Structures are given as C-alpha cells and as structure tokens.
Amino acid sequence: MVNTLNESSPERLRDVATYAEALAEHKEREARLQEETDDADVEERPDDLPDGVPAKATITIEEINDNRYSYWQWREGDKIRSQYKGSVNPDK
C-alpha cells in the first residue's frame, strides 16, 4: 500500500485521504451504534408492549396543550421511532 501511495499523484492522494476520513467516520459511527445496542439492558418484554414495538423501547412523556401523552420510543439504526401509548393522568 505504501508503494502505491508513493507512486500516486497529489490529486489521487487527496482523494484517498478524503475517502479514508469518510470511511473512518462511518466505522466509528457503526461501532457507537453497536455499542449502544449491546449496552441495552433488556431482560423481558413488558406485558403492555404492543406488536411492532421492540423490547428495548422506553416510554417518553410529552406535554401538548396542558395534556400529557406517553409514547413508546426506540432507535432503528440512526432514526428514532415512536408509537403512541396513551394519555397520562397526572393524578396517578
């Protein structure tokens, strides 16, 4: 590899450097996502978990117009997914 790089033009070396940097960032991101998945302490599927919602999902509560709502929320790759769970009663 060293010999090939030594024989390359400056333009080719810049292209290789750009590609190598992008590849390194991609691999670091994949490793972080895998580590997040490995770190998830999921033992059992909760009884009230609906179909299509993974066991690693957590409950998020949001307030909209003085009303509180809960959602199942989980990560799929680099996206956050949500599914409505229900209204939250503040008296409970």
Rank of each mutant, 00 (worst) to 15 (best):
K79N: 02
A31G: 01
E30L: 13
P46D: 06
T18A: 11
Y69G: 08
L13T: 00
T4D: 08
L13C: 02
T60G: 01
Q34N: 08
R29M: 11
E25Q: 10
M1P: 06
P46E: 09
Q34K: 15
T58D: 08
N65F: 10
I61D: 13
Q34H: 11
L33T: 03
E35R: 11
R12P: 06
S8P: 02
E43D: 13
A57E: 00
R75H: 05
E21S: 12
K27E: 15
A57N: 05
T58R: 12
D41T: 05
A17L: 12
H26T: 13
G77C: 00
N89V: 04
N3I: 15
S8M: 12
N6G: 02
E62W: 06
A57R: 06
N89A: 02
W74M: 01
I64C: 04
R29T: 12
D51A: 06
D51Q: 02
D15R: 05
N3P: 10
I80D: 00
E43L: 12
D39T: 08
R14Q: 09
G77A: 07
N89L: 04
E11P: 05
L13A: 03
V42W: 07
K85I: 07
D47Y: 02
W74D: 12
R12L: 14
E30D: 15
T37I: 11
E36M: 13
V53H: 04
A40I: 14
P54D: 01
E11K: 14
V88H: 11
D41P: 14
S8T: 03
A20T: 15
T60Y: 03
L5F: 01
N89W: 01
E21L: 12
E11L: 15
E63I: 01
K27Y: 10
R12M: 15
T37K: 09
Y19E: 11
L13K: 00
D41Q: 07
V16W: 04
E44A: 13
E25Y: 10
E30P: 04
P50D: 02
L49Q: 01
T4Q: 09
V16H: 04
K85S: 07
A24H: 10
K92A: 11
A31W: 14
